[in-house]
């Protein structure tokens, strides 16, 4: 049978372990982090070096040669040519990782309607948009002091009256 003091010591120790574990988890996970999902992701895509991924707005982060306008120029015409029609208006946001070699993977799409509420567009059409982004090959990876780095990137598709009207 534990004495009172031993019981209190045990409880305080367990509490401290739980608090430390919870705090560690809270400090080491970031909003929007994307981890590999074998159901969704290409097994050939890999992160480089320490697997840290810079945020898309980090000034050392990834760029696309020619900027968002070049992305739009490269894929809008092709997508319009395919005559993809959506059943609603809104904004489709792809967030993904560009690794240190300029390769893309870990794509995740989120969509909102005109009232900025979460909505779901046809998954087949989302796949077509993702395939178009995956073809982009002019990424300039993020760069640290002496090495290229992994970065998050975003591409938005603005849908108005069922059609893609802007990509940025």
């Amino acid at each position: 049978m534990l004495s009172k003091i031993n019981l209190l010591l045990l409880i305080s120790l367990l509490l401290a372990i739980v608090a430390t574990g919870w705090f560690y988890h809270q400090m080491n996970n970031r909003v929007g982090d994307i981890s590999f999902n074998k159901e969704l992701d290409d097994p050939d895509f890999s992160l480089c070096s320490n697997e840290y991924v810079l945020q898309e707005y980090n000034s050392y982060g990834v760029d696309y040669n020619g900027g968002e306008r070049a992305i739009k120029k490269q894929i809008l015409e092709e997508l319009q040519h395919e005559n993809i029609h959506f059943d609603r208006s809104g904004l489709i946001t792809f967030r993904f990782v560009v690794n240190c070699k300029g390769e893309t993977g870990l794509f995740r799409a989120k969509s909102v309607n005109d009232d900025l509420e979460e909505t779901a567009f046809d998954p087949e059409k989302i796949e077509k948009l993702q395939a178009a982004i995956a073809k982009l090959d002019q990424w300039e990876p993020g760069e640290g002091e002496d090495e290229k780095l992994n970065s998050y990137a975003q591409v938005h598709f603005k849908i108005e009256n069922g059609k893609i009207t802007d990509i940025f």
Binding site: G32, V112, E118
Partner: peptide
Amino acid sequence: VALNKRGKYAEGFRLLD
């Protein structure tokens, strides 16, 4: 702020609204 910067607009704008 962090939600909108990372493209989570439904959650971000619900808070901003």
